[in-house]
């Protein structure tokens, strides 16, 4: 059954515009898709590797600003900016991670919070980022209107989610989880924990920055107000609510967190009070999240004896 969950979810995501393609619905859907991508990226850092990053939208800001600045300054199509975005995202991950990843986990949390603010304030203060007003007139990805762009987003996000799930079940993903479970034991097994944590940051940054590009294309503008701590906290909530380390749980969590405020629009700030309470309640009563990973694998596969494998 498990293997059908992903395709089924994808099918639903693709089907909705055929039912309701109003600009409002498409806007909510596109925003939700981008949010799912952010959550998948943060899940690598927090869920797999156990590093609390409270300034994750900084990476999204890096991606959005890089593509926005390049595309408006040089009149490039947005797609052409992606290589530069990836390079800048990796650099940002290294710059932020290198000094902080040697720290204890709780220090790391607050330092990432600080970094998130540094990026935002810097974007507000500098001229080439457009100051407090940001950057306007970013070219979109024009593929048949808002519905077309939504499908592009769904495709990219589906790949991102699949990619993060594949990483989870690999040598690198296991190394992340070894660190999350017991850093000392991981070291004793020869895991270069510092390097492996940096890689978690790098992958998280790539996911976040790519989501930033979609974000810039969607709004055709970026401004510092989009990257406040509230955003980082919401992404974190999506990851925690769905179940840290669980790819599908996180997707569901992200959809819930991005759609619920739309439904509860009338409640104003109470929505966030509600989120805060939910965060505490989940941690106290159900720390594994709503749809946690059930880590199981086949007991023993009677694999044919491979030549040269058995010692």
């Amino acid at each position: 059954m498990g293997r059908w969950v992903g395709p089924a979810g994808l099918l639903v995501a693709v089907a909705i515009p055929f039912v309701d393609a109003s600009p409002y619905t498409l806007n909510v859907l596109t925003t939700a898709a981008i949010f799912v991508m952010l959550a998948a990226g943060l899940n690598i850092v927090v869920g797999y590797c156990g590093l609390l990053d409270l300034g994750y939208v900084a990476f999204m800001a890096v991606g959005a600003y890089t593509s926005g600045i390049l595309s408006t300054a040089f009149e490039l199509p947005l797609l052409y900016t992606i290589p530069a975005v990836l390079v800048v995202a990796v650099l940002a991950a290294l710059v932020i991670g290198a000094p902080t990843l040697r720290l204890r986990s709780d220090y790391l949390a607050i330092v990432t919070l600080g970094f998130g603010e540094i990026i935002r304030i810097t974007a507000t203060n500098l001229d080439f980022t457009g100051g407090p007003t940001g950057i306007f007139g970013i070219p979109g990805i024009d593929v048949g209107g808002p519905a077309g762009f939504y499908f592009v987003c769904v495709a990219v996000v589906a790949l991102a989610v699949l990619g993060s799930a594949r990483l989870e079940r690999s040598r690198l993903g296991r190394a992340w989880m070894f660190i999350r479970e017991d850093e000392d034991a991981a070291e004793a097994m020869g895991v270069n924990t510092y390097r492996v944590k940096l890689l978690a940051y790098v992958f998280g940054a790539i996911w976040g920055a790519s989501a930033g590009v979609l974000f810039a294309a969607h709004l055709s503008a970026v401004s510092p107000q989009s990257f406040v701590f509230l955003q980082s906290a919401l992404v974190l909530m999506a990851v925690v609510l769905g179940g840290m380390g669980s790819a599908r749980g996180v997707v569901v969590g992200a959809v819930v967190i991005s759609v619920v405020p739309e439904v509860l629009r009338d409640l104003g700030a109470f929505r966030y009070v509600f989120f805060g309470v939910v965060l505490v309640v989940v941690m106290v009563l159900r720390p594994q999240g709503l749809w946690p990973v059930r880590r199981r694998e086949p007991e023993r596969v009677d694999a044919p004896v491979q030549e040269g494998v058995r010692v």
Binding site: R174, M177, F178, E181, D182, A185, A186, V191, L199, E297
Partner: peptide, 24 residues
Amino acid sequence: RLFPNLTVLDNVRAGMHLRGGQNA
């Protein structure tokens, strides 16, 4: 000092982390 939430097999795989054989 095992990795409590990981499977028995994954725990043993940890010992083989340095043997590589694949990248991201």
